[in-house]
């Protein structure tokens, strides 16, 4: 990145430098940044604040970092990160902030203020998220060979699921995998219902569309990319997480279809 020529970082203590680096790194990881990007950004920030050396280790659920200042003071800290998701606009904002920090180190309070401002930003209005979900599932139902009626069913079902998932009751009370299980089960029931009512034509095509909301296909790809980049630990963790989530989805859909089969006596499938 950019060279530092006007920096006067001597006033920053090891604790402050580490605090700033960890705050930025945590937000970056939170927003879906790659592991090596987080490690790289944190190392650069430590250097920008005048660290003589820094060691950073990141996996998707944890950050560990150690900083040594030229006067020999050290700081060591670890930081647990509970969940990561894709938030591309935030990724962009934090990256811009870290560029600013590396070019001319900001005071600690200002970095925290700017991070809070980035976190508060809502670049995509809520209704647009619903439109996005409807568009995505409907289109992928058609993409995999469904008819337009299947696509319509997938869209309607996904709209219901997204609205339910963003309800505070479910968002707070249920953890990530539990939410996946619930929405998959609901998706299976609703898909069977849509076919039974006569709106949808192929139940598997409706399901293929609606699963795209939850299926960890992207994290599966990211896991293998991490492995190829040499981040073996985080690659393995993401790999297992993706497999587990897909397994839970499959189980939930199977349970939903078995239940509807019982209720309607197998007329649906």
């Amino acid at each position: 990145m950019d060279t530092i020529d006007q920096a006067q970082p001597s006033a920053v203590s090891a604790d402050d430098a580490l605090d700033i680096a960890i705050s930025v790194g945590r937000e970056l990881l939170h927003a879906g940044g790659e592991v090596h990007r987080v490690e790289d950004t944190m190392t650069r920030i430590c250097t920008a604040y005048g660290a003589a050396g820094s060691e950073v280790f990141v996996i998707p659920s944890m950050i560990m970092a150690d900083v040594v200042m030229p006067d020999g003071t050290r700081a060591h800290r670890m930081c647990r990160v509970w969940r990561t998701y894709q938030h591309l606009a935030r990724l962009e904002g934090i990256n811009a902030l870290s560029r600013v920090i590396c070019a001319s180190p900001l005071p600690r309070a200002e970095v925290m203020d700017r991070l809070a401002a980035i976190r508060a930003e809502r670049p995509v209005p809520r209704w647009l998220c619903y439109v996005g979900g409807v568009l995505a599932t409907g289109c992928f139902s058609l993409f995999f060979g469904g008819t337009w009626r299947d696509g319509l069913c997938a869209s309607l079902i996904s709209l219901l699921i997204i609205i339910a998932e963003r309800h505070p009751l479910i968002r707070v009370a249920v953890n990530d995998l539990g939410r996946t299980a619930l929405s998959s089960f609901a998706g299976g029931i609703l898909a069977a219902l849509a076919v039974a009512v006569g709106l949808g034509e192929h139940i598997d095509m409706i399901i293929v569309g609606t699963i795209m909301l939850e299926i960890p296909g992207l994290s599966f790809g990211n896991a293998i990319r991490d492995l190829l980049c040499g981040d073996i630990m985080s690659g393995l963790l993401r790999f297992i997480e993706a497999l587990l989530r897909a397994l839970i989805m499959a189980l939930s859909y199977m349970a939903a279809l078995a239940l509807t089969n019982l209720l309607w006596g197998g007329a649906v499938l």
């Binding site: 962009e92 795209m212 299926i215 296909g217 599966f220 499959a250």
Partner: peptide, 27 residues
């Protein structure tokens, strides 16, 4: 645009993502 590459890579690979396949495997 001086942004992380994954801001664009993530949307780019969405049509390729093997979501349906992963589901069928597990099912």
């Amino acid at each position: 645009f001086r942004v992380p590459a994954s801001v664009f890579t993530t949307p780019c690979i969405i049509p390729l993502v093997p979501g349906g396949m992963l589901y069928r495997t597990m099912s």
